[in-house]
Design a protein around this nucleic acid. Structure first.
Lengths: 336, 336
DNA sequence: TTGAAAGCGCTAACAA
DNA sequence: TTGTTAGCGCTTTCAA
């Protein structure tokens, strides 16, 4: 396996010249560059990433920190798509992605520290869920570049983050339902997370904007499970003036909601319309298929990398936030 | 950030002594070792991974190669769980996991080559799906350590691989159904993959073993979609002597099957029992909930790492295969 | 049981 | 525009 010396010798130049070619240094004459590149190709030369990293004092990897013990956050397609986006964006920048599992069961700080201090990674991307333990402070103190996935809650220090524009999603759902003639739109909220709150805020904002009355009784809170959704919808359907449409926090809740509606003898989408957040495969497996608020998680990953690279480039830059637009995926659960 | 010199100086020893302590070299006296360890702790010292790697001529990472473009293989919980197992097992061996996306759209060989030759990774784990292009040969030729996930098909060169014991799963399903009094057991096979074939083989083996008649007409082939499963089951139910139980290739097919059974007015599990392969969340969301053949993907990841480390340790070792046991997850879709 | 020093492959300051 | 050379932080051989 050839190294830079071999190339230099074969090309009849010094190692620094080869290095410059490698790094696209503009000082090199076109002729020399071409020649060296040819030799590299002939030798099938690939620079040693560790030597490069050591010399440059920076790794060529970025970590995606996750808590794999936390199934709801890790064990779902959400994560996959984000990861896909991240990997692709990193690759385009000659970086590679390392997955680092910060389980609650292990010593998170220690593990992260060994990655950071050990120069294993150049930056990190982590879900806001992981912020609880004072990881942020640790990272901040070391001036280590990182970006957070999902709007953070109650964190004093400022940092870069990216999230889905959940409020916009709520607005789109309401707007579409109104457009289709639904009038009493319920909102089935899942766990008390910040993104569910934002979705609700969007819902309220759109009702107001379209001069529709806002009825607090149409907001149901559940724990995100199928069963709790089922119970809540049954309850809503016994109201004096029951809803004629429901916006569900996610696909799982939608299944509980649909069951309740079916049992009450109402027809979807004729009597009651449903829009669900998220767009998992099951949205197309149920009957009728679900109209969803689709969230572009791939793009969210790409954006996270963008922010991270910006931060690495300029550690002192002002903190930035990116929100990814949502879009409606119309299927059968809303009137045509 | 302290380096090995700082530690050496502070401890009043040479850098080689510090290095020996770092590497658990037994030649170091207990006293010296303790002292050096204390200084390390005081300084919060973490060795630079790149310097180590450069010196040792080997990276501290292992790559999981995936094709993220291929949704069916990547975009599912299957992958998550395997990854979970891999990460954990690697971590226990002071290795970290890098995700490398070998999309069909990109130049796979080139990308892999830059990882391997660039000393970015010490070994690789890849799904058998990726073997098509002659990646194996490339890896083999370089004597690069790798392990394959999933039984390979038609590959001439031998290598280490690990898979779920699918045949065993088929046997368990049949055995349990027979035990519960079902007599005419249909097998709804998904795409023509090797693991579906193995499941079918297990099915046949167990029928034979329990002296149950094997009726070819009870084997239905479909493309793995809900709709094709629905059609096939409808067809089976019109046979002169229709099945009283169905083994489905996966959860999605089960949904189509259940729909067909419901429409025909048969009751699950009374009239017809269902067992599904895989154990996705949706198995618990449908009604009745699905009895499944659970596959331990976490363990499969762990095992893959075990084989990989063995190969790294001893490149000339004989090739090994590991099959992970399946287990039955009993729920409502089979008689109690 | 420990230390001195060369070397892993690359980069960059300085010199030419 | 290119070459010389001193590191980057660690490991390991050889000598003591």
């Amino acid at each position: 396996m050839p190294n830079i010396k071999d190339i230099a010798k074969a090309a009849g130049v010094s190692t620094s010249t080869v290095s410059r070619v490698l790094n696209n240094n503009p000082l090199i004459s076109l002729e020399t560059r071409k020649h060296v590149l040819k030799v590299m190709r002939d030798f099938n030369y690939v620079p040693n990433s560790m030597a490069r990293g050591l010399s440059n004092q920076k790794a060529s990897t970025v970590a995606l920190l996750v808590d794999m013990d936390d199934s709801p956050s890790f064990d779902n397609l959400f994560f996959h798509k984000v990861m896909y986006g991240i990997e692709n964006a990193l690759f385009k920048n000659n970086l590679s992605l390392v997955i680092c599992n910060l389980q609650a069961s292990g010593n998170r700080k220690k593990r992260l520290n060994s990655m950071v201090q050990g120069k294993h990674i150049q930056g990190a991307i982590l879900p806001s869920l992981l912020l609880g333990s004072d990881l942020v402070n640790t990272l901040k103190k070391q001036e280590f570049p990182f970006v957070v996935l999902g709007e953070p809650e109650n964190i004093a220090v400022p940092f870069d983050w990216v999230d889905i524009n959940n409020a916009q999603g709520g607005q789109q759902a309401v707007g579409y339902l109104i457009e289709k003639g639904y009038r009493r739109i319920a909102f089935l909220r899942g766990r008390k997370t910040i993104f569910n709150r934002n979705r609700l805020l969007g819902y309220q904002a759109m009702l107001k904007q379209s001069n529709s009355p806002f009825d607090e009784r149409l907001i149901a809170e559940c724990d995100g499970s199928k069963d709790s959704a089922y119970r809540e919808i049954l309850r809503l359907l016994t109201l004096l003036s029951p809803p004629d449409a429901v916006i569900c926090g996610d696909n799982v809740m939608s299944i509980g909601a649909m069951k309740a509606i079916r049992e009450k003898g109402r027809k979807i989408p004729h009597d009651i319309g449903i829009i669900s957040f998220d767009n998992y495969p099951m949205a197309e497996l149920v009957e009728p298929t679900l109209t969803t608020v689709d969230i572009d998680l791939y793009e969210m990953g790409v954006e996270a990398v963008k922010l991270l690279l910006r931060r690495i480039e300029n550690p002192a830059a002002s903190h930035q936030v990116s929100l990814i637009s949502t879009s409606l995926q119309v299927r059968e659960s809303t009137r045509a």
